[in-house]
Design a binder for these strands. Structure first.
Lengths: 191, 191
DNA sequence: CACTAAAAAGGACATTTGTCCCACAAAGAA
DNA sequence: TTCTTTGTGGGACAAATGTCCTTTTTAGTG
């Protein structure tokens, strides 16, 4: 549920420490909007510690959470490749420490550091691999099954992430989420 | 709805014609399964002409279509990057002509041909960018709105793709799709 | 042509989920 | 403390979608 990429963050740490590249650190408090949908930026972020949410919001203000981003997850990189506007907003949930690459340094690294290039390529592929079955499952099964699945994957999710965010992640209303949670509880209380 | 990548197919055509790489052509009839979920392969496909569907099926036989693949779309590449099993099956809809890369040649190209590397990177990023808003929209809006949207994007979709596939793409049952189509028709007949 | 199989359309009913409320508790601000 | 505000929980009903089944249409085959 909260995605991570430990290899990438370790590698970035080394790049940063080498001092050879235009990479720096930034920090954010909780609930700060870091990038906003439909805008242009010229830097790429990589989470060093903390949790953020990446979401799309529509005209009616509905939010749909794409991913919860943990250590080692990058954002802003898609816009680098496509030279377009952001499709998601990213907002910190907890306090956040990030590495930031300028477009120039990111490009330079992709060109000259084959290992970095491979890590980024794999990170992109992972994002695709992860999204596919998740959306498929969410469409095909009732909310309850999705919750059971979440709980197995990430038992403490209710403590860290708000109900509203969980609902937006699963793609249902908070009301429906509540109903499903109650059902689950009643079922487990029988034993 | 049917995704394409004309630059990539043109570039691959050139690579193939150069004869310097381990790239060859294959052909398939309609409705042939080309790769199967949860298997390993050691080649990467790129569509030269025709249309295929990429879908996930679950234990209960439900299919969820991820993408309709047209000219220039590749598949089998995610497994190359992650060294894992396929998460989707791919099946031709029309007759299909494809280029096939051996893993060795694909790897060699990524390493030595910066332009190829960039094209693949961009193709991965495009897949992510495309998926995100689509699933978001499908979750947030009723079937009818989704159909209107599809029709604007791709007016002739009902002629090429079967109702069942369209339903599996939107993530609903054929029955619900029919209902929505009928509603739409009645509404447009009023004018 | 007649026959079969597959795709499409839709009726009737059950279930799930959403909408619109209101109530209550927890956290922060005055 | 008291007063907001925000998150949470849930009742009652409406709407959307699924399930199961039957009928019709279409496409293909001997």
């Amino acid at each position: 549920m909260i995605r991570t990429n430990l290899k990438l963050v370790a590698y970035t740490e080394n790049l940063f420490n080498s001092g050879e590249y235009d990479i720096w650190k930034e920090e954010f408090g909780p609930k700060q909007k870091i990038i906003e949908q439909d805008h242009r930026y010229n830097k790429i972020y990589l989470i060093k510690s903390g949790i953020a949410k990446c979401y799309i919001s529509d005209e009616n203000g509905k939010e749909f959470i794409q991913e919860f981003l943990g250590e080692g997850m990058e954002f802003g990189e898609l816009e680098f490749f496509n030279k377009g506007y952001t499709i998601c907003s990213v907002e910190s949930i907890t306090a956040l420490k990030v590495f930031v690459f300028s477009y120039a340094s990111f490009n330079q690294l992709l060109d000259s550091d084959r290992q970095f290039n491979q890590l980024i390529m794999k990170a992109l592929a992972d994002k695709i691999r992860y999204k596919a079955p998740r959306h498929s499952y969410q469409h095909s099964y009732p909310i309850e099954d999705n919750l059971i699945r979440l709980k197995e994957l990430f038992p403490e999710f209710t403590e860290i992430i708000s109900k509203k965010d969980i609902a937006n992640y699963i793609g249902v209303t908070p009301r429906s989420l509540n109903r499903a949670l109650k059902e689950l509880k009643e079922k487990s209380d029988q034993f």
